[in-house]
Amino acid sequence: MASPDKPINTDVPEKNAFALHFLQTLSNLRTQNPFNSPNKTNDRVTKIKKAAYVSMARAAGGTNRLWSRALLRRAAKEDNKIVRLRKKRVTWQRRRRNQRAPEVERLRKLVPGGGGMETSKLMEETAHYIKCLCMQVKVMQCLVDGLSPK
């Protein structure tokens, strides 16, 4: 009886979409910095990680989700690009900040874009985020397994 507004939607994103996008960005990465640049291993790791997250966000429906929006925005910011996402109104006053449970605050930090969310929204986003992460991990695991020599 609480929320007849709309059902909580946590669809699992397309793993193929994610894989495709991820692989594309990986190949782009490869062309950008030649593979025999061993000094940049660490850099490359972060880049790959970022690519993974960005492609996950893309696969998860782009800007429909708050966390994916936050991810894309952050990524774009890192690239020094001008971010132009359609603005969504977040009608949520930041009240009771001090009273909130510390666990929720921790979760807020974990979920991208969680800082400005209402708690119930945060939960919803977290659910979706977890699903996407699972998918991402699976696909990446498969990639690693397949690419690495047997």
């Binding site: 692989l23 593979f35 490359r44 790791v45 790959i48 991990v137 990446m140 990639l143 690693v144 690419l147």
Partner: peptide
């Protein structure tokens, strides 16, 4: 999960040298 992703990306960074192209 996030750590796993990180780990996997590390792995990938080492794995996908020539093949991915």
């Amino acid at each position: 999960l996030q750590r796993q992703v990180e780990f996997l990306s590390m792995k990938l960074s080492s794995v996908n040298d020539t093949r991915l192209e």
